[in-house]
Design a protein around this nucleic acid. Structure first.
Lengths: 272, 272
DNA sequence: CGGTTGGTTCCACATATTGAAACCGCATCT
DNA sequence: AGATGCGGTTTCAATATGTGGAACCAACCG
């Protein structure tokens, strides 16, 4: 019934609260002491205390022995390593992204959708060395990024509805599509052309061309983008990347599909 | 009382179980269906079911709509992004690692210790492009890796004891130090010389020189290693890297210290 | 069409979580 | 020194939560 997913104030049971605490600690972005967490949390002192202890025991948090500040634990990193491997299509997409980045000599992003937000799971920077984990895991808005729009455009109606309801439509730049109506119209174009553009809608001077990655029939499982700046490319020259981008996106989609249904999955899916 | 930290069968409360389930799913390394998890878990059907539902609600797991297989969720990736930023010293160490890798033209690892295990939080591969997240988050044994031994050597007695009790002492290669006694003896040498070697103890043909990263008085907060193969370097030529390695380790330790105690922390620590 | 596997829901019971209040240690203030 | 306050830890009864055996439903298979 409850279409509402997590995000703040999800509140299923004890683990919900525990995870909220994790988010809370994460939000600080640096080690925090007990009292700081306390006043940011709705939980009463004693409860929070035990929760923190439990989480620390579990390795989800670590507590500095000197300053007794809590920070996210390494178990999380360990888990995430797995999460990244299995839940994201990053590992599958890797070779294609490498190739694409090398070919176009621009920054390439691989993103997925989570709770209406875009989450970058990989990035290849053709010029600079690399940015690594510092980028993977980053989240961003869906309504004003190329990858976000590319994915939105190919969502099923109900999922789109859900996703739209989560957008905050803040005006990042003058070009930002700041209403659901404008966005919807653009999504039609995107569906038609097969690619989405970010026309400095998120950050001034930054533009990109993005394509959805589709699996099986027509499920979006991610998006791929080539990002550059107005200093390097005019908006309309972005189309030069279109063939390479689309090819890479298709290749990744195909690879993902093959990986999901190697040939033996007994409880298969509805015929394609 | 219970020195035992997490790992399987930790069992504090509900969240403990929830996290165990996460580990379980992670262990599969690929999306798994309900029944598969069920038979790997001690939990009864109904309980596990609700647990999975909760975790899915919370975004810690995702369930494929077609095959209803569970996989680690993107929220985890998001959290880990933060965890990596704040709990690990990777972000601080980054520039130093880059420099070191460039200087020595060999693979450089940055690792930390968690529950007696080594966890790699960063890696720089001087020759190949990069390995990214695919490496960060990886865990390995402490007793037979350079970084592991370097950290063990500088643990406080009680922590060392705890860590040792968690080692499994499996013979990876003929050179593996397979008993606590042998290991202890080696730790003395490491303390004396300031660096640890991996003499093909983990993988044949792979050798490394590692140094602990120390903060404030004498707390190990991580370790740094330069890894190469017997094909490229003889064991005794590794010493050539020693100065650069030690310098980098010291620099990182210093930077971490400055970062931890910028200058204003009111509830400071014992005078340094 | 009946048997089986795989997943979901019920419900009485027990356990784990709750949170006000008391407590401790330690630094600071007078 | 002695008092005061703040940050962190512990206790304990009330109760909300999670538990898990068993029944249930659906879909697939023979």
């Amino acid at each position: 019934m409850n279409t509402q997913a997590h995000s703040p104030a999800a509140g299923d049971g004890t683990v919900g609260k525990a995870l909220d605490v994790l988010d809370l600690v994460a939000a600080f972005g640096r080690p925090v002491r007990f009292s700081a967490i306390l006043e940011a949390s709705p939980l009463p002192k004693a409860t929070l205390y035990r929760m923190l202890q439990t989480l620390t025991n579990q390795g989800m948090l670590t507590q500095d022995p000197d300053t007794q500040a809590y920070a996210l634990g390494l178990r999380l990193v360990r888990l995430a390593h797995e999460a990244w491997r299995q839940s994201s299509l990053a590992p599958i997409a890797r070779p294609f992204i490498d190739a694409l980045a090398a070919e176009v000599q621009e920054t390439v992003h691989l993103a997925q959708m989570d709770a209406g937000q875009v989450i970058y799971v990989d990035k290849r920077n053709a010029t600079d060395p690399i940015e690594m984990f510092s980028q993977a895991g980053k989240v961003g808005p869906a309504y004003c990024t190329g990858v976000g729009k590319a994915m939105l455009a190919h969502l099923t109606p109900d999922r789109l509805q859900d996703a739209l309801s989560r957008q905050s439509f803040h005006d990042h730049t003058p070009a930002t599509l700041d209403t659901a109506i404008k966005l919807m119209r653009e999504l039609d174009d995107i569906r038609a052309s097969g690619v989405a553009y970010d026309r400095e809608e998120h950050e001034p001077g930054i533009i990109c061309i993005a394509a959805p990655i589709l699996s099986s029939p027509a499920r979006v499982i991610g998006a791929l983008s080539i990002t550059t700046s107005t200093a390097r490319h005019a908006l309309d020259t972005l189309d030069g990347f279109k063939p390479a981008l689309l090819r890479a996106a298709e290749d990744i989609g195909g690879a993902a599909h093959d990986w999901q249904f190697p040939s033996d999955d007994p409880s298969a899916h509805s015929p394609s």
